[in-house]
Deep mutational scan, measured.
Amino acid sequence: MQRVNMIMAESPGLITICLLGYLLSAECTVFLDHENANKILNRPKRYNSGKLEEFVQGNLERECMEEKCSFEEAREVFENTERTTEFWKQYVDGDQCESNPCLNGGSCKDDINSYECWCPFGFEGKNCELDVTCNIKNGRCEQFCKNSADNKVVCSCTEGYRLAENQKSCEPAVPFPCGRVSVSQTSKLTRAETVFPDVDYVNSTEAETILDNITQSTQSFNDFTRVVGGEDAKPGQFPWQVVLNGKVDAFCGGSIVNEKWIVTAAHCVETGVKITVVAGEHNIEETEHTEQKRNVIRIIPHHNYNAAINKYNHDIALLELDEPLVLNSYVTPICIADKEYTNIFLKFGSGYVSGWGRVFHKGRSALVLQYLRVPLVDRATCLRSTKFTIYNNMFCAGFHEGGRDSCQGDSGGPHVTEVEGTSFLTGIISWGEECAMKGKYGIYTKVSRYVNWIKEKTKLT
């Protein structure tokens, strides 16, 4: 034993070699072989497995989906700052455009905790909710729209109204504003409101030439003092309507412009014939205590009207009353817009006519005020429907199939267009061939041609 100890002390290297040989010859039971080890760690190889990531292109799944990435790591994937920024906006807080917040056709661009709407022409605001041009839906104005110097929408209202708090709607500024039905039992019968379409306001006024200088022999019209197929109006439903009495009662109609003036057809009036105007009328054979009678003290036909040349060209006249009318729910003026808007309103496509005229061709006159909704007829169809001249200051309205029309005794009465609950004068009943005849239409004086003249002559002093 002493000898062994001496050998170990003198030859430590020998001992180490012996131990190493023993270990190498022993069977290893701690580690699995290569094949079995792979069965336990069965993990798919990654895209760049075996390579240094710093030297390969980034992978979106590896960089940002398996674990949260930084902007720089995302930049490695896209290799483009702009594309990385677009991805980053949604990656950080989701897609803010998912709810489609942009209105009126706006395009949404996502941002971090926010979004941006790219608005089409005519709109602005956070969600493109603000109209900035009158060309689109009248700028959301209830009545009139004008573009300011910086191309912003400025709404306005006709006389007797003021802008509401929203700067879009119009509200009454006087007790009985024009064009409004205020009798409670008839307010439910107000005709369907007309909503502004998209309009090209630059070209809204037709490029028409008034044929002022045409000389033409007097034409022989049949029954051209021209509501057939209409309905009984309720008291106060058309408070701007008046009836004219002269040699015979209810020979023509008219509309209240203001307390002192009536507008009617020029062919209705004769110099030297006494005319009485009755406002607030409903049943011409009954006294309903809503009527107001006034005498006409002055007749002003349009300066281009000449019955000797043509009885229905420039067929418009103004009547001055001896005493002002007292405005109330049964006696209310009709609204008159400017030339541009009167023309736009007419193009809405349908209007209402009213009167006490004959209820059928050569038949009896109506006792109760009649009204009828009539569609506008395109000019080409209008011209083809008659052998008589249709001037540019006239328009056609009615039904091709016949059966409904204005008729004798309705002449001078109103053709009105309702705009968001307020009625505007767009025409004056003038003439036609018979009444409600198939293929024939009622012919009306186009008020847009005469609004400046009306307003100039009827100013209240």
Rank of each mutant, 00 (worst) to 15 (best):
N393L: 02
L41V: 15
S220Y: 05
T133I: 04
E165D: 11
T264E: 01
I284H: 06
W431L: 08
D111A: 09
L327P: 04
C97L: 00
I300K: 03
T85G: 13
V242K: 00
V419R: 05
W431E: 09
C102Q: 00
T386I: 12
G105S: 05
R140Q: 10
I256F: 01
Y330C: 03
N166P: 01
Y352W: 06
N283L: 09
Y371F: 12
R140W: 08
F123K: 07
T215M: 05
D198L: 07
G442K: 07
A233W: 08
K137V: 06
K362Q: 07
C268T: 00
T225R: 09
E82C: 03
V416R: 02
M394D: 01
I284N: 08
G229S: 11
I336G: 00
N135H: 08
S423R: 11
R46C: 04
E27I: 02
P175W: 04
T426G: 00
F395P: 00
S25P: 08
A337V: 03
V195A: 14
E270G: 08
R46S: 14
K51V: 07
Y371A: 14
E82V: 12
P12C: 14
T225W: 11
V419F: 12
E320W: 01
P235H: 07
E72A: 15
V154G: 05
D232I: 13
F221C: 06
E456P: 03
E61H: 15
G58D: 14
L425M: 04
L189Q: 09
C117R: 01
N283K: 06
S217D: 12
V77T: 15
Y450T: 01
A233C: 04
V359K: 14
N100Y: 08
T290G: 06
V202K: 12
G409M: 13
P301H: 09
V77G: 15
N306S: 04
P12E: 07
T332N: 04
P333F: 00
Q167S: 11
R226Q: 13
D33Y: 04
G280K: 02
Y47E: 06
F176L: 07
Q241W: 05
V174M: 07
D223E: 09
K109R: 09
N104M: 02
F388T: 14
D33S: 11
S354P: 05
F399V: 13
Q370S: 12
V419M: 09
A337R: 01
K347T: 09
V353I: 14
A279M: 02
A265Y: 01
S217R: 07
L189R: 11
V243H: 06
L244E: 01
N258D: 04
D150V: 07
C382N: 02
V228A: 14
G409Y: 12
I300F: 06
T85R: 13
P197E: 07
G412I: 14
C407Y: 05
G412S: 07
K137T: 04
P172H: 05
A26N: 03
T81E: 08
E73I: 07
F345G: 00
A397N: 01
V278G: 03
W118T: 15
V154N: 06
N104K: 02
E401T: 12
L24Y: 07
L41Y: 15
G427V: 01
Y22N: 04
R75W: 04
V181C: 06
T81V: 14
E208N: 11
C268R: 00
Y371L: 11
N113F: 04
H289P: 12
Y371S: 10
E54Q: 11
S99H: 06
R162G: 05
T271E: 12
L325Q: 00
C128L: 01
V374R: 04
K126A: 14
K68E: 04
K39S: 11
V174E: 09
K362N: 13
R83C: 05
N36H: 10
K459P: 04
T29L: 14
E10H: 12
L103G: 05
C134D: 02
L372N: 12
T287M: 11
T386M: 14
K438V: 09
F144V: 02
S423K: 12
N213M: 10
L346T: 08
A317I: 02
L211H: 13
F345Q: 02
G125D: 00
A9F: 13
L318Y: 01
A207V: 09
K446R: 10
F388M: 10
V374E: 01
R3L: 13
T389Y: 10
D405G: 14
N166S: 04
Y161G: 01
E86K: 15
R226H: 14
P177Q: 01
S49Y: 08
R298S: 09
C155F: 00
K293F: 10
C178I: 01
Q96C: 03
G254S: 01
T29A: 08
D131H: 15
V56P: 15
Y161C: 00
K387L: 06
G50Y: 11
N245T: 10
E72Y: 15
E76C: 04
G421C: 02
H289A: 06
P333M: 02
D378C: 03
N166T: 03
Y115E: 02
N127S: 06
I297M: 07
G246C: 03
Y391F: 14
E142P: 02
G409A: 13
C335G: 01
H302I: 01
S187E: 08
D223A: 12
E142C: 02
I297Y: 05
E193K: 10
D223H: 12
S25I: 14
N138K: 03
H289K: 12
E270R: 11
K459D: 14
R358Q: 12
L163D: 00
T186W: 07
A265W: 02
P197A: 13
Q408S: 12
K387P: 08
V451R: 03
E231R: 12
Q241F: 11
Y441N: 03
Q90V: 11
D110L: 05
I428Q: 03
K51Q: 15
F55L: 10
I429N: 15
R384K: 13
L19R: 02
E433R: 08
E82D: 15
C69R: 03
H303R: 11
T426E: 01
Y91D: 10
E159Y: 07
I390E: 05
L19G: 02
R46Y: 10
S365H: 14
E86G: 15
G246N: 09
E285W: 11
F345S: 01
Y450A: 01
N343Y: 03
E98N: 10
Q57R: 13
R3P: 09
S385A: 14
D111G: 11
G272C: 05
N203A: 12
W453G: 00
D200A: 11
A317G: 03
T225M: 08
E159V: 07
I454S: 00
I454N: 01
F87Y: 15
H415I: 03
A37P: 15
G442T: 14
I214R: 09
I7Q: 11
P235F: 08
M8C: 11
M437A: 15
V183W: 09
I214L: 09
G160C: 02
I210A: 12
T342P: 01
N213E: 09
D198H: 12
E66K: 06
H302D: 02
F78S: 15
C97Q: 01
T215I: 09
V243Y: 13
Y115N: 02
N113L: 06
I336K: 00
P375I: 11
R404N: 06
K152R: 12
Q57S: 12
A308Q: 14
V273A: 13
S329C: 05
V277K: 00
Q90G: 13
V30L: 14
R294V: 02
D111K: 08
V269S: 04
E82S: 14
E165N: 12
I334F: 01
R449L: 10
G229M: 11
S148R: 06
V56T: 15
A279Y: 00
E165A: 06
M65N: 15
C69H: 03
C178P: 01
G412M: 10
I275E: 01
S107T: 11
T133A: 07
L367M: 05
D249S: 12
I136R: 12
E86C: 04
E98T: 09
E433Y: 07
L52D: 08
G432V: 09
M8K: 14
I334R: 01
V331R: 02
G402M: 15
S182N: 09
D93V: 05
K438N: 07
T85Y: 05
F71D: 15
S354R: 10
M8T: 13
N5F: 13
G58A: 08
I297V: 09
T158D: 03
T158C: 05
E320S: 02
G349I: 02
V181T: 11
I17L: 12
T85P: 15
G357C: 14
S70G: 10
S49Q: 15
N393C: 03
Q143C: 00
H302P: 02
C335Y: 00
G122E: 07
I316P: 00
Q216Y: 12
Y312L: 08
N135E: 15
R75M: 14
G106T: 01
L14A: 06
R191Y: 07
S182A: 10
E54Y: 08
